[in-house]
């Protein structure tokens, strides 16, 4: 994964604090930062498995037609 963990976590945290910071205490901001760090670590784990271009998301889009009664 490209980019340092600290920088990415800081940037993502700032994204939240920019929008919602006025509602949050310093302690809550610190908890949010920790939680974003955990998500980053999960993302790193996901990137340890290689995928082929044809490995599609395992959820299927189905074009819709209303069922006739």
């Amino acid at each position: 994964m490209l980019g340092s963990k600290e920088k990415i976590v800081e940037n993502l945290s700032n994204l939240i604090f920019e929008s919602y910071g006025s509602r949050l205490t310093e302690k809550e901001k610190e908890e949010i930062r920790k939680s974003i760090e955990q998500t980053f670590e999960n993302s790193v784990k996901l990137h340890q498995i290689s995928l082929e271009n044809g490995d599609e998301p395992f959820s299927v889009f189905i074009p819709y037609r209303k069922e006739k009664n």
Partner: peptide, 12 residues
Amino acid sequence: EDRYNGYSRLTV
């Protein structure tokens, strides 16, 4: 914790 935990997920 439920009052602030949701915010971090908005960054996924």
